[in-house]
Amino acid sequence: MTVPCASVGAVNVNYNASEKLTTTASYSNFQTFTNVKPQFQYINQLTPYDNLDTLNFMQLSQNANVNINYVLGRDPQLPQNLNVNLSFQDAFDKQGGIITKGNNSQFYNLASTYSRTNVKKAYTLSRALNMTYNTIGTTQMITAGPTLMANKQLFEKKVQTGASVSYNITHNLEAVQGQVALLRVNGGYSYKKKHLLNLSAVTMYRTMNNREAQNDVTVNLSYNYNF
């Protein structure tokens, strides 16, 4: 017999300090509790007093996020934007009131993006920096790296093109564990707002400790029709 129950709490706050500066913050937690008594304890017992113990298992997680967006410059034809996002997640298990060793994890993620758009020429250039720190049990890992992105509209905005290149490195506070270099290109063509043809390609070069380097290429072609 299993008796589960759950509880959820969440709060969100939005604050517009000015026309240029916007901040949002959120927090949530989730808790599940399960009281388990396997059916074979009933099947295999000799008396009604055998196997009285049950398993009390609890999973808890909490999430927090802060987002800051700031508009740079005053020219509406050349808008610039700076965005910073920080997120946190904590999750762990409890069994019999004790946190299970090796089953707790924490994730911290920081992402910052600067973008500049030319409305007249219909293109956007962006630069981003991402960093993630996580602990799973006794393991600690950091992954960080930059990304460059460009998007351009052509032929009266009927053709959408984009490209990005990124690089990130992962280490465990003692030695480098792996590196990834990634190139993405994509293009889309819209015809009479009903037909949409998309083509995208991704090439990734990855190295990891004690493993051979890998180079993967993925190409996707899709067609959509809107009724």
Rank of each mutant, 00 (worst) to 15 (best):
V84D: 02
T100E: 13
D216T: 07
K37A: 00
T23W: 12
N172D: 13
D50H: 12
G178P: 02
G96F: 06
Y108R: 07
L183Y: 09
N104D: 14
S7Q: 10
F88Q: 15
K192W: 07
G178T: 06
V185T: 13
V176G: 02
K152G: 04
K157M: 05
M141W: 00
S18F: 15
T139L: 11
N103C: 05
Y225C: 01
T143P: 09
G178I: 01
Q140G: 02
S126R: 02
I43R: 10
N14F: 15
P48G: 09
F155P: 08
Y191R: 02
T54C: 03
S7P: 00
N56C: 00
N198K: 09
V219W: 03
P38V: 08
D53G: 10
Q179P: 01
K120R: 08
K158I: 12
A150H: 09
L86V: 15
L52Y: 04
Q95D: 12
T203I: 05
V119W: 02
V176Q: 09
T143K: 13
L148A: 09
G187Y: 04
G162Y: 02
A163Q: 02
V180R: 09
A25W: 11
V165G: 12
L60P: 00
D93S: 11
D50A: 11
R206F: 00
G188D: 01
K94V: 08
K194F: 01
S166K: 07
M58T: 12
V180Q: 10
Y123K: 07
Q140N: 09
